[in-house]
Amino acid sequence: MNQIWNNFINWMPQLLGGAKITIGLTILSVSAGFIFSVFLALGKIAKNKILNSICSFYIFFFRGTPLLLQLYFIYYALPDFCPALTIGSPFLAAFIAFTLNSSAYLAEVVRSAIISIDRGQIEAALSLGFSRRQAISHIVIPQAIPRLLPPLGNEFILVLKDASIVSIIALQDITKVTQNIASGSASRLVYIPAMILYLVITAFFSWTFRKLEKKSIAYTEK
């Protein structure tokens, strides 16, 4: 038993190094994906048919194809399609794939939150001299934020766990580090602390989003 505990302690620095990659990739890709999703959502509800069609197809494509294949294409197939688009960094390739995929899912979340706001508020803002862009940015979006946080938190947790697939492009996340330790030490027990580490990270960010949601609701009720 002491040997097992000592192994856990020895493995932890490597696992924590992998956790930095996993968390960093998740935060960056979801943040960038959320920003992009706002434009996609606004494009999908726009009256411009061309813009609406482009945004709708983008969302359909990235929601309708597996993230794993998207990652494969960006890292392995894209250079064959256009050598100038070769991405040498596994982290950058993963960031692009996860951002594009996350933005498609979050776009539907943002769109639903926006259209859930009473349209009369937009019309009232327009009658007061606001432009449509100002009405959306100053009136609609602030009210939509509390409604966005729960699904945004869910997407964050999903991306955090889906990040394990980046091990296929040799990015040293938690899963890849775990595989390396397992093959090097011939001990499969490393999967135990790896799963515990995922649970701790997931629990922390779930708690964080719940706190943000409560604060956001309290702020809008003032």
Rank of each mutant, 00 (worst) to 15 (best):
T220S: 15
S167K: 05
T99Q: 08
N7F: 14
R133P: 02
T175Q: 06
F91A: 13
A32R: 08
I122V: 15
Q134M: 14
F61Y: 10
T220W: 03
K44M: 12
I21R: 00
I54C: 13
I145H: 04
F60Q: 13
A94S: 15
F57N: 06
F73W: 08
T220P: 03
Y105N: 05
S206E: 13
D118C: 10
E123T: 07
A19E: 07
A135K: 08
D173T: 11
F60H: 09
A46C: 14
Q134I: 06
I23F: 06
N2S: 12
P83I: 05
S89Q: 10
N2L: 11
A113T: 02
F130Q: 02
I196F: 09
R63E: 11
S56E: 15
V140E: 12
C82P: 00
M195L: 14
S216E: 06
F36T: 12
R119F: 10
D173A: 14
W11K: 06
D162Y: 09
A182N: 10
A194V: 05
A32E: 09
F34R: 06
T175E: 09
L197Y: 03
F205S: 03
T202I: 15
Y198L: 09
L197K: 01
I54S: 09
A93L: 02
K215P: 01
N180Y: 08
A218L: 15
T22A: 11
P90C: 12
Q134S: 15
F156H: 01
A84L: 14
Q14T: 14
P66K: 01
S183G: 06
F81S: 06
M12Y: 08
L100M: 14
A93F: 01
P13V: 00
V177M: 11
E108A: 02
S56V: 05
G64T: 02
V30G: 03
S164M: 01
R133C: 14
M1H: 08
A41F: 03
T99A: 07
S131G: 10
I87K: 00
F62M: 11
F57H: 04
S127L: 08
A46G: 10
R111N: 11
I174P: 11
I23Q: 05
A93D: 04
F60G: 02
F61G: 00
A84V: 13
P151F: 05
E221P: 01
W11H: 03
D162T: 01
K176F: 15
A107Q: 09
P146W: 02
A84Y: 02
S164G: 07
L16G: 07
A170T: 14
N10W: 03
H138Y: 15
I54E: 12
I169L: 03
D162R: 10
V159H: 04
